[in-house]
Nucleic acid binder design. Structure first.
Lengths: 146, 146
DNA sequence: TTAATTAAGGATATTTTTGTCCTCTTTTTT
DNA sequence: AAAAAAGAGGACAAAAATATCCTTAATTAA
């Protein structure tokens, strides 16, 4: 559904939200290891999330790393998609038609519409914090094994 | 959501289903024009759909072109996704985790599951014929304008 | 103040996806 | 039988996505 870059962005952000506070800031190496993503590529993605979009914050130097402000934790997951310029995945026509609309619907339109709406609602309603808290049991997982 | 290739595959197949019978077989040029896709690339995709997977049928030579058998028209739309090797889009973890399962759910799992199920059901239930018939009014559309 | 640590950023490489072009084969028409 | 009209298939090209590496800047600790 989403690109690798966006998958890493989601996983990394959720992990940082879980692990970070004023004192504790996971670094790139730790994040990439835990979420099972290529390190340098993940660095680029975290830059994207810190730079314009202010979803992730960072500090350099020893004991530096990445963290989320309380404000950032309250952002909808959708904001990560927007930061990765991939929110269109949820909004565009399933058949990829520019034309497709209520008045000029594609053959999938009527059937797909309610699902699309639920998808958007899910990503708009759920906050980063919500997902970070979703460790209801010890088996919830954010990476691929060891 | 899907790749360009799969979008073209869906549009082309629906168009062929609408336009074809024993006598009438739209050709590549017509198909590509109507569904607004790059001609030669569309040729490759139609080859994929004819070759192994037997979703689309074709005949060469003058008055040749593409058509769907009655049997093919009754296939679920899902079969097009499988032919394009993109059915995983619907089934895999939103966060891209191999691990993710009922016993080791990712943080989105519980919320996303019912939506995933609806998506799969939609593509498994709807047939190509269903979509081809979905011209309830004259404004239904399968390409991008003129 | 020097050394060490860590993110930022630029340049480059690799892979995948998307797309084109040309020749070959099949089929029909003349 | 020859010519024309299509799809089939291979080789190649371009663009985008994914990934790596190296240097610089910021910050902290010794």
């Amino acid at each position: 559904m989403f690109s690798k870059a966006t998958e890493y962005a989601l996983r990394a952000t959720i992990y940082i939200a879980r692990r970070s506070d004023e004192k504790n800031k996971p670094g790139l190496a730790e994040i990439a290891k835990v979420i099972d993503s290529p390190r340098s590529f993940t660095a680029k993605i975290l830059q994207q999330l810190t730079k314009n979009n202010k979803i992730v914050s960072s500090v350099r130097g020893p004991n530096g790393g990445f963290f989320l402000t309380d404000k950032a934790k309250k952002l909808p997951v959708y904001s990560i998609l927007k930061a990765m310029a991939e929110d269109e995945v949820l909004t565009k026509c399933v058949l990829g038609l520019k034309q497709c609309s209520e008045t000029k619907p594609c053959p999938m339109h009527a059937q797909y519409k309610p699902l699309k709406q639920q998808l958007i609602k899910l990503f708009e309603t759920k906050t980063i914090q919500d997902l970070a808290s979703e460790i209801t049991n010890g088996d919830s997982v954010i990476g691929n094994g060891k």
